[in-house]
């Protein structure tokens, strides 16, 4: 009697898994997490667009199409267009050396690549001032030849490159390590040279990781504030990136225009998140070795 009743309740116990919490705990935790995220993520994001459109579309359009804003957009795109290809080549070279070969000091090299992430943006700007500024190492020489790096576009580009150095390399290294070198070794054995192997074997295998790193690199390149702020000199129409333009407008109490320009950057951030989510699945696929 007792055994038959226990065998009847057994399936019922399985239906409510032992590794799940009570419904009320699940709901409370979910609600708590979502409230925290709404407060700290959703609200600030909505705030940008709300403040930008406070005075209507006409004011908004005017703010993002005035000459200084357009110049800022141009400079932002220029800096990203220089920084991304350079860091792309660096990322591929670094990942090739680290993932395909065994050598001493490899883990130190990986840490060095990550170094820019742990340097305060302000310090990044400062070190370039120390080298290229008027009192810096190269300062007198640059002045003699009528060249400017600090308070000019080259400084902004350099600072942008510095802060975005790790992005592509740190995506490619684990991806290429996980994929191993068998396919490349086969290509070499079949008579391909190094460049052919890189172009026809390696790059197709890492294309999604490459794209993923580029998306993150681009977001940071276009949004960087602290580092470029130190080297820019804030000359309107000349050395102002979008991110810096936001600050200038804000400090002039031109809040609607500041938020209008900020909303462009927020849209870029949303686009980045969307693309990132799409590409993420593809990268996971490639790590598993499903080259489709």
């Amino acid at each position: 009697m007792a055994t038959s009743s226990s065998s009847q309740t057994f399936p019922v116990q399985l239906a409510a898994p032992v590794t799940q919490e009570q419904p009320w705990i699940r709901w409370t935790l979910t609600l708590l997490a979502l409230s925290f995220l709404s407060l700290f993520l959703l609200l600030p994001l909505m705030g940008v667009f709300f403040e930008a459109l406070k005075k209507g579309w006409d004011v908004y359009i005017d703010a993002i199409t005035e000459p200084d804003a357009l110049a800022a957009i141009r400079l932002t795109l220029t800096a990203a267009a220089i920084a991304i290809p350079l860091n792309l080549v660096f990322g591929i070279a670094a990942a090739w050396a680290i993932a395909k070969f065994e050598f001493y000091g490899k883990s130190i090299l990986i840490s060095l690549i990550d170094l820019p992430f742990s340097v305060s943006p302000v310090v990044t700007g400062l070190i370039y001032v120390l080298i290229f500024g008027l009192q810096g190492w190269a300062g007198p020489w640059l002045k003699e030849h009528d060249l400017a790096v600090i308070f000019a576009v080259p400084g902004i580009v350099l600072a942008t490159i510095f802060v975005t150095v790790p992005f592509i390399a740190r995506e490619l290294i684990p991806l290429m390590q996980a994929q191993g070198s068998e396919e490349e070794e086969a290509a070499i054995a079949l008579g391909a040279n190094g460049w052919q192997t890189l172009w026809y074997v390696t790059l197709p295998n890492i294309k999604w990781g490459l794209l993923y790193g580029t998306i993150l690199c681009n977001a940071r390149a276009m949004g960087e504030f602290g580092a470029v702020s130190v080297v820019s000199g804030h000359i309107r129409g000349l050395t102002n990136t979008l991110s810096l333009h936001v600050e200038i407008l804000y400090n002039e109490y031109n809040f609607v225009a500041a938020f209008a320009v900020a909303s462009l950057l927020a849209l870029l951030a949303l686009l980045t998140l969307a693309l990132k989510t799409l590409v993420e699945a593809k990268v996971a696929q490639q790590i598993r070795g499903n080259h489709s």
């Binding site: 979502l34 995220l37 993520l41 959703l42 600030p44 994001l45 940008v48 943006p121 993150l216 977001a219 276009m222 949004g223 960087e224 504030f225 602290g226 979008l242 991110s243 810096l244 936001v246 600050e247 900020a262 950057l265 927020a266 870029l268 951030a269 949303l270 980045t272 998140l273 969307a274 990132k276 989510t277």
Partner: peptide
């Protein structure tokens, strides 16, 4: 929600 978690990485700090 999962995608939104990375917003602070993607949103420029001045914004």
């Amino acid at each position: 929600v999962d995608a939104l978690i990375d917003l602070p990485f993607a949103l420029p700090t001045s914004v």
